[in-house]
Computed example of a mutant assay.
Amino acid sequence: MVMHPTVLGATRKFLCRNSSNIQLNLTQVICIDPGQKAQFLHRDEGAWDWYDHFPVNFHIEVSTIWAMDDFTEENGATRVIPGSHKHNLLPLSFTQADSLAAEMKKGSVLVYTGKTIHGGGENKSKASRRALNIDYCVGWVRQEENQYLSIPIEVAKTFPDDLQRLIGYEMGAASMGYVREFEDPRVALYPEEPFDQKFFIELLEKSSHFSNIAKSVYNYVKK
């Protein structure tokens, strides 16, 4: 689910407009039981110290909610404030009456940016409403869920290469996340293997697509 090619591909394309890399932010199962009240409205990018005013056109996170049961108005489908990813109004400016239920069938996925104001709905049904929440973020912020502690290194070694990189065993940006003397983070998983440091140049080249500073440094280094 974490590596779903359509979701991951769209997320990379969206977030890499202002980042050279992305990473897994969190994974969690959410269960809203019968009688549970609606969750408070919020933006997921609030995880970064509840900062009120990230620039409207600067995105650092993409969230997904996978329906493990049918999502309905009655059983507490996730509620969203339409258009809230395009302004800086605070979540407390809105009420549940301003929101819409993201009704969808089991197996469907709701994809939204970290700027979208949303919250779990009130469950008025007689059954629990379950969902799988998988979020991604740019590589240069700290992950909400500490992947290095949540996933023992012995378990991480069993993951495919691309999943290892996504959970954080990879450089997060052109100069972000190296180990000791500018070593690839994957050296923590495979200390016996030599790693080429060309990843610095590769990430710098990616950064040059959205940063004039990075472009000037890249051009200088490539001379």
Rank of each mutant, 00 (worst) to 15 (best):
N88K: 05
L41K: 01
N133W: 06
W140Q: 12
V155I: 15
V187H: 04
N133F: 10
V62D: 00
V29C: 07
N123A: 04
D162M: 01
A102H: 01
I65E: 08
G83V: 09
G172K: 00
F159M: 14
F71W: 11
W48E: 03
K206F: 07
D98F: 02
V187E: 02
P82S: 09
E202T: 10
F40Y: 10
N212E: 15
M104I: 02
N123P: 09
L8F: 11
D52C: 11
E103D: 06
D69V: 06
E73H: 07
A101D: 11
S20Q: 07
M171K: 01
T113K: 00
H53T: 12
S84A: 07
F159S: 04
N212C: 07
V141D: 00
F40Q: 11
A77M: 06
S216A: 13
T11V: 09
D69M: 05
Q23T: 10
S84T: 12
D33E: 15
V217A: 10
I60H: 03
P152Q: 02
I30M: 10
G46E: 09
Y220D: 11
P5V: 07
R17P: 08
M68A: 13
S20K: 03
G168H: 00
K124A: 02
D135N: 15
E145R: 09
V221T: 09
G9C: 05
Y148D: 00
K198F: 06
A214E: 05
P55Q: 11
P82L: 09
R142T: 06
W50H: 13
Y220F: 15
M3D: 04
P82K: 06
I151C: 12
W50F: 12
Q36A: 10
T158C: 13
R17M: 11
L163D: 03
I81V: 14
Y169I: 01
D98T: 04
P185Y: 04
G172T: 01
P34G: 08
L149P: 01
K223D: 10
A131K: 06
D98W: 03
I134C: 03
I81R: 00
F182A: 13
F14I: 12
T158A: 13
S19D: 13
P5L: 05
P160C: 14
V80G: 02
L89P: 02
A38H: 07
Q197E: 13
G9S: 05
G46C: 08
L110D: 05
V29F: 08
A131R: 05
S93V: 09
K13S: 15
L163Y: 14
E73D: 13
D44S: 06
N25K: 06
D33Y: 11
P160I: 10
C31N: 15
D184I: 04
P5R: 02
S211Q: 08
P34M: 06
F58K: 11
Q96H: 14
P82E: 12
N25G: 07
R165V: 03
H118L: 04
L110A: 03
H87L: 05
R17T: 15
N21C: 08
D196M: 04
E73M: 07
